[in-house]
Every structure is written in structure tokens, then in C-alpha cells.
Write a protein that binds this DNA or RNA. Sequence first.
RNA 1: GGAUCGUUGGCUCAGCGGUAGAGCACCACAUUGACAUUGUGGGGGUCACUGGUUCGAUCCCAGUACGGUCCA
Length: 858
Amino acid sequence: MSGDLASSFSPADIEATLYKKWVSAGYFTADAASSKPAFSIVLPPPNVTGVLHIGHALDQTLQDCLSRMKRMKGFEVLWLPGMDHAGIATQNVVEKQLASDGKSRHDLGREAFVSKVWEWKAESGGAILEQMKRLGSSVDWSRERFTMDEAMSNSVITLFKKMHDAGLIYRAERIINWCPRCLTALSDIEVEHQDDSGEFVSVRYGEGEQSITVATTRPETMMGDGAVAVHPDDPRYKHMVGTMVLLPLVNRMIPIIADELVDPDFGTGAVKVTAAHDPNDFEMAVRHNVPFVVIMNEHGVMDGTGTEFDGMDRFEARVAVVEKLRSLGRIVAEKRPYIHAVGHCSRCDTTVEPRLSKQWFVKVAPLAKASADAVRNGSVTIEPKELEPRYFDWVDNMHDWCISRQLWWGHRIPVWYGPNDEVIVVGPGESAPAGYTQDPDVLDTWFSSGQWAFSTFGWPEKTADLAKFYPTSVLVTGYDILFFWVVRMMMMSTFAMDGVPPFKTIMLHGLVRDQFGKKMSKSRGNVIDPIEFMDKYGADALRFTLARGANPGTDQALAEDWIGGSRNFATKLWNATRFAMMNGATVEGELPAVASLNAVDKWILSRLSQTISDVDALLEKYEFARACEILYHFAWDDLCDWYLELSKETFAGTNATNTKRVLGHVLDQLLRLLHPVMPFITEELWTTFTGGESLVIAQWPTSDASHEDKASEKLVAEMQEIITDVRRFRNDQGIKTSQKIPARFIAKGAIADYASAMAFVLRLELSDITPSAKVEIGSVQVEFDLTGSIDVVAERARLEKDLAAAVKDKQTAEVKLNNDGFMAKAPESVVVEIRERLAKTSADIERITAQLATLPHA
RNA sequence: GGAUCGUUGGCUCAGCGGUAGAGCACCACAUUGACAUUGUGGGGGUCACUGGUUCGAUCCCAGUACGGUCCA
């Protein structure tokens, strides 16, 4: 019924072939018309510019794990792949290429530039999708999407209009984050705050009595000041509020205002109000009618101050302004370096410049509230629950979202302006009246990727996919993009889909770090390349390592050694399967009645049943690490180290029919359980072993309570104890593991039936001997004929060590049992357990003491 | 500064009111019957500190110290 396995496992020989087989068989293609229950996941779309990094590998391993398990459980699974057009990032890549030819996008013009980007995408974009195949991701390639696809653009425009009509999108002049290099607005989340070394300068404004010292980190913007602000209750300045003070350098009179926003304990307690260049100042300015004075252009170059600083870069100007103030004797104090948080463009790291500008915004309050409510009322669950506060913290305190970008690559804002400042939104299939011109800006990338959970299914059309697969079952992603993407998905989906959130569960995992728990970064040089490690150890090994480290919501360390360990595990599975096949293990025919089986077979079935129910429950709870741990130990310890060893004697005999069938069953079920995590090797082993078509479409195991058997578990535990103790004895006595020793077992009851199995494992030759040494475990004695003297010193040391342990255990048990409080209040089951421990340790002490007494003195 | 998480063997992490666990690393022995990408045995932790609750605390509570992350 089955083929042969090579003598060793070589991942490279099977992976690509198997992946092609799965795809061409259509296993991953979802059927919206299926009567099976749906299970759907949308892949967090990687950037079109991206390459597979270890974080993707983790994210996809977990999603694939869930998808494959659900598929085996009989769900109609759709795991939808695709990519994000990544506005700024992609435009930057193509602009860089142009720059190397000494050109800018303006040389090409908008249309030519955009088609250049499409060209780039066709040639070098999406490398990551091919890399996903290496990993084995069971995505539905027939449904691959790109956020700039026509259908998705249609969704974007439709939703923009819908939101605009609902009053959720508006245009306003505000202070926004501006990147002077990318020359576009950024949303709050595209700004990264870093501790920078700056300066903190105190400058005296005004003259004589009518002077006030302001402290600032941005002296260069003072030419744009419209006021000085103090706290209303600050006694130092109360008398000055409402008066005017001279603004140096430009010699303009500006008012002193009082505002609660000022922190009297910060600096001098007086701050300059630069309405057009600082978001807090902007707020105050609005409240107090302070004029907006723009003193910088879009490149971050001083402009319009009418001073010698015009034309200087903002940082150059900072130095020059301070220099000038110093020469004027206006510097009261300087602190340099002054470490403070400064915003940087997340795409190019340029220091962000707050800039007064007219942009489009999403009014987030009602959307954020709906998103928060969905989690608060339980219609969406966040796993692990501990991360919920972070979610609420964010959605409950969100600012309006700036969605316009001064870029060319992206969804063009569907707004047209008429000759008399009319504003209309032009939906799909509509067109603007003659003489209207379209807004030149494009939408934030997240505006389209935020629609990923429904636009990919064909919204706004009422498609079969949408009906079948929305809302998606679970979103699997790193907690680091909870705010970027997850919240946007929640807001936009809930709005577009009439209150139905995009997923039932948000499963958050952590970041992959290096082997010391440090963040991976190019500058540290500790970045792990998943492709390199798949080449070296196989995709299964990488996947297993990642899944095994994936505790919910927490970061995980990753070391090459550990991937090697997982590769060893794969090798172990390979060899165990070879062994099973060599010994005639089979999946043919009914599993024999449990009553007819020997205790070892009963035991492994019992362990299997527990393993199945544990692994199933843990995977359903997204406890990947614990599920993998259980699988690892079941496979390696229970199956390979004990079951196979204890069955060797049976296989060597003539009555192995039942055991062959049991082993076949256990192996079959184990490979199924492991398939979601290690799809390649399990597929190869299982198809070879069983002759079945594919594990991808095989049934997921279910536990069988009738297989659970405490008596056999107890018996095998006893056998394990005996074997371990005899091995220890042999080790202590320096007897080679290969050397066969004449021995006999003195045992009563069920255990006596397994003397020969144990003897086989222990390389003992059972015969009627005259013993010269013995090992006692509980009521069982194993006697040996060592034909000569034993190492008494070693033997005495071993027994004394056991004795000491038993004495210590006995004491702790006695202390408890002599404690009245314990006896009065501890639950009965605990008391019973301690009593049993006392009995056992007492017996052990007696036995070991007696044995020591028989030893000759060295 | 605010919030939040963490502190368990050499490293990375599980666990959790009732005698401390894993992987890797380490030590010794072994080429034996699927596997040296192996097997067998072993060593190693007063579970950060101080109080409290409890018959009993690594686990619960409070505080302290140190570290991380997010937000400002």
C-alpha cells in the first residue's frame, strides 16, 4: 500500500513539489457555494515593496496553522492573500530609481509616473508572494488582491462617498504632520517619536518692565509667534496677561495670553505661541484669536519672515537665530543637549514639521466609538484579553484622521471642485460636470487597506463571497499594528457593513526577537532571514520553531540552534515513520477492540486521545506554543522513546498484529495533528505511509474517551520507573548499554507480564540466575548476575542519594500531616495525596536501608 | 511624564495556591535493534526584594528596585 522513504529527510527534495501539488489540486481554493461552515481569514496585506521577513513568517505560520486545521475539520476555508500598494513607500522606491537617472517625478508628469510605478510593480513588486509559497501558506491564489485593483478602487470610492455623505469626511485647514522630504501630509501613526538631542533655550521677549522669558526647543520659529502664553493662575505673570510684549528679531508687538494648556512648572512657565507651526499652539491660537504667521515653506526652509533668515533650512536657522539673539543679549539660559521626543517620518526618518495646511479628514469619533463598542459588547474578541486595554486606550482617545496625501501613487481623492468653489464627490460610474477639476491628492494607504476585510470580497456588490465569508473568522496579526491597521479595519468595516465588524476575533501575537530577546534591526546586525533558514533547515523546522514560541501576545526570541532543534524533530518523525513501516505498521482494517490489546498499546491510545483533545483545545484557543509543546513530547517521548521501545519485543515476536495496527493508527493520527504546523514532512510521511491522497483534505482527529485508561497509564509509568532505575544502575556500574546481562524479574501482578518487554529495552537476558546485585523499585525487584563484584562505592552512593531524597520527602509530608491547621482546612484529596506520599517514602526508606545493609563495606 | 507588561536554572521561556518544568547549553557514558540531525544517565533554580492574606505563596494583594513596550 505504500512506497519507500529515503533513509534521511531532505526538505528541499519535497517542499516545492508538494506545494505545487496542493495548489494544482485546488485544495486551497474556497467555494462560496459550499454548504460547509465558513472559516475565513484575510492575510494582512504585505507591502508590494516588501520581502518576507521573520515577522511575516510567524504571522503566516499561525494563520496557516489555523486554516489547515479548520480545513481538516470540515470548514470551507478561505484564506485570502494580497498586497498593499503602500503609497509613500512605493513612490519612494520608484522616485529613487528616477533620481539615479537624475530625474524627478515632476520630469515625467503624473500620468507617466504612475504608469512607471505600475511597471515597477509588474517587474519587481510582490517578491513576497513567491516567498510565501516557500513557507507553505495555504492561501487561495485564485482570490489574490491588490489594494489598487479596479474592484478595490471601486470600494474605496464608494466608501469615501458614503462616508462623506454621512458627514464623516470633511476638509479643513489644520496643523498636520508634514514630511518636508516626502512633501506630503502624514497621519499621527505615520509619525514615529524618537528621543533626539536638541536644545532648550530661554529667550527674553520685550524690554524692561514689560519683558517675559519664554523657553523653547524651537527658537527658529519665533518669527512666527503670535502671542506668549502663560497659565491663568501663575502669580508670576498674572499682572501681565492682556498686555503686549515686543517680539525680538521681527520687532512686532504680541499679546500675552492666559491658557490652561500651559504647564507653569515647565521651563519658565511662559511659552511662545506659534500658531502655524505647532499643534498645541494652534489650539491655543484658535481659542484666543491669535494670528497664524507662516514662516516656512513646504521644504522646511524659512520663508516670508522678511529677515536674513529667509532661505535658510530650519535647522540652520535654529543656530543662526540663537546666535543673533545671543548677540542681542536676549538669551537667558541655554540647555544643550536637551533630550526630548521629536516626530520623524516613518518612511524616511526626516524630522516631521507641523504645518498649517488644508487637508481631508475622517471624523473618527463615531467610528471609534462603534469599534470600541464592538469589543466592549463582546461581538469582537481580542486574544489575548490582556491586550484589550491597549485597544481601548487607543480607540477612546483618537484624533481625527488626516487621509489626504500629496502623492501620486494611490487612490485619487474622488472630489472635484467647480469654478466657484463647488465641491462634489464623484462616485463610481459618475462623472464631474464640465469645468470641474479633481483634487490632486491621493488617499492614505490605510484608507484602502482598512477596507481589506470586505473590499476583497467584492463590496459594494452583494457577492457570494461577501455573503459566505464576511465577517471573517479571525484576524491574526502582531500587536504592533493594532493601531495602524486593526483599528482602521474595525472603523471602516463596521461603518460600511452596517454595523457588522470585520472579524469575530482579533488574535494578536508578538514580535520575533533575536536569541537574547533583543529587537532585530539592520543596525544591530541580528536580523534573521527566514529564507536562509528554510534553505538550511526546511520550512517545517522554521514553522515549528515559530509556532512553538508563539505564546499569545508576547514577543518571542529565536535562535538558529532552536530551528536546528526543530529540524531534529522532523528527522525524528521521519525515522520513526521508517521504523513503523519497517515493522509492518498499518492503517488497514478496524482498530482492534481495546480490551484485546496489551497494556502498552492501551497506554499509547490513551495518551493519544489526551493529546488530541489537548492539542485541539489549545489550537482553538490560539495557544500555539503549548500545543506544539504537547505534540513534541507526545511524538518524541511517548511515542519514540517509550512506545516504540516497549513494542520492539512485540515486533520481534510472532504476535504483533494488534500492535502493528495500533502503531499505524497512532502515527496516522499524530501526522494529522502535526500537519497544520509542519505541513510538508507530515504530507510526505503520511501519503507514503498510508497511501492516502493528501493530509490537506484529511480529517482532523477526534479524541476517543473510551481509549483513556488510567490503569494502563499507571502500569506504564511503573515500567518507566523500573527501566529508568535499571539504566541508572547500569550507568553507575559502568556497564555498557550494549552489554547483555543475565537477569531476572521478581514481580507480581500485571507488571510481571511485561518483564520480557522491559528486558528487551534494558538488554537483559532473562534466565534463572544466581543474583549478585539487584535494583528494587516499589514491589518489583530486578536481579542481575554480574559474574563478579559490583562497584560497591557507586552502588552505595546511588542508594544513599535515593535514601536522602526519600527522607526529605517523608519529612515534608510529616510536617504537613502534623499541622492541625492543614488537617482541619486542606481539602480531603490533598490530605490523601500527602498520606500516600508518606506511605511510599516510608516504604522506600525501609527498602533502601535494608539494601544498604546488605552491601559489603568498601 | 502617563499607561502597561515583565523579573523562574548559563540563555530563551512555560507554569501556577498543595514536593519547581521545557528547549537549547553543560558533564559523563555509549556507535546498540528507526534515528549521532542519536541514545542513556547526570549536574544546575531559597521562582527580584520587603511586607500582607492563607493551614500552606513562585503563584493572590500592597509596596520597592530593576528591565521592556506603547503613548506623550
